[in-house]
Amino acid sequence: MAEMTYRTALVTGASSGLGRGLALWLAKHGVRVFATGRRLSHLQALAAEAQAAGAAVEPVVMDVSAVEPSQERIRAIDAECGGLDLVVANAGIGGPTHGKRMDWERTRSIIDTNVTGAAATLCAVLPQMVERRRGHVVGVSSLAGMRGLAGHAAYSASKAFVATFLESLRVDLKGTGVQVTCVYPGFVKSELTAKNTFPMPFLMETEDAVERMGRAIFAGAAEVSFPWQLAAPMRVLKVMPNPLFDATARRLK
């Protein structure tokens, strides 16, 4: 497949963390970026930083868990800009959901954003991309989605959904001109991880993680996972027999 030239991109969850970093990285590489999020002031600060670097980021206030309005907005942007080349479903939330202290409201919130919101983002202009025989959809999963981690049932499951959803899309879209990439980050410095109260091995700087994401997207990689020091053992856990995994997960929690 020939390497794509990216003119336009939409990145969700761009108010902070990986989404903000990727939006800025893409803009600095000459892409017109529509940066979406719920906090206008954060998006405006991002746009100002991009402008100072001679790049173009356009703030779009959007809550991906509000599916219909979000899809309508993405489709309107697609029509206005002459077709989005890249759509990145990055918006996500976390938090503990322990089986012994299950909080349904938190669980539902994680599903609404990480599952329903991500799928709606990825699907919003996919038919148009297929018709144009051009485009790239990217979803941000997590190394935590490779197995059901103790105390984080909703988060692990939500990220497993993203990975499996993208895998099926990748198979379906082969030969259409539409590329699919799944990103599996480990621990990256962000507002989300700053709230964690447990050890975060091999915690990465946001800039390093963004660089790896951006290069993988431009290369049309099917998957990218980082850091390797955490990705390698997580892939071992993925194929580990359940009794052994259960014992290991209980020790790790």
Rank of each mutant, 00 (worst) to 15 (best):
N196G: 10
L10D: 09
A231H: 06
M146G: 02
M62G: 08
L18N: 05
E105K: 14
L122Y: 06
K28V: 00
D208W: 02
T121E: 01
Q44P: 00
V171Y: 14
R251D: 07
V115S: 02
H136L: 08
V11N: 09
P96V: 06
R75S: 10
A119Q: 03
G145T: 09
A27M: 08
V239F: 13
A209K: 10
R75N: 02
V210T: 07
R39V: 10
I217A: 11
K253T: 10
G54Q: 09
G19V: 04
E205Y: 01
A194W: 01
F245A: 13
D246Q: 13
L126I: 04
P227W: 03
A14H: 11
K253N: 14
Y184R: 09
L230A: 15
G145F: 08
Q229N: 05
I77D: 08
G54H: 06
V57C: 13
V33C: 10
S190V: 09
L173R: 02
R212K: 15
A232T: 14
L40W: 01
R20Q: 13
A216P: 07
G220E: 11
L122Q: 04
L230C: 01
T206I: 11
A194K: 05
D63H: 15
T5A: 12
D172L: 01
H136F: 12
A66G: 01
L26F: 14
R132N: 07
R250Q: 14
G30L: 11
G83I: 03
P96C: 00
V180H: 07
S142I: 06
P241L: 09
V137G: 06
M200D: 12
A222K: 13
E58P: 01
V236S: 06
L169W: 00
E49F: 00
L84C: 10
K28F: 00
S41A: 15
W104G: 02
A91G: 08
G13Y: 03
A66V: 00
A23D: 02
A231M: 08
K100D: 15
E131W: 06
K253Y: 14
L126P: 05
G135Y: 12
T8A: 04
G83T: 10
V162M: 05
V140L: 11
N114K: 00
R20A: 15
V162E: 01
L126A: 03
Q51V: 01
R251H: 13
R38T: 05
S65A: 15
V64C: 00
R38W: 05
F34G: 02
K189S: 14
A91S: 13
L173K: 05
V162P: 02
V183H: 07
I74N: 03
H42V: 01
L237W: 08
P201D: 08
A144H: 06
V178F: 04
T5S: 14
A118V: 12
V210F: 09
P227R: 04
H98K: 14
N90E: 03
W228Y: 04
L203E: 14
I93N: 02
G220C: 11
V60H: 02
A2S: 15
R7T: 10
A48W: 02
E72R: 15
K28I: 00
R7H: 15
D208Q: 15
F202P: 04
K174R: 15
W25P: 07
R134V: 06
G135T: 03
Q179Y: 13
Q71G: 09
A89F: 06
D103V: 09
D103A: 08
A14N: 11
V138L: 06
I74P: 02
L24G: 05
A150S: 14
I74A: 08
D112L: 04
S156Q: 08
E105L: 12
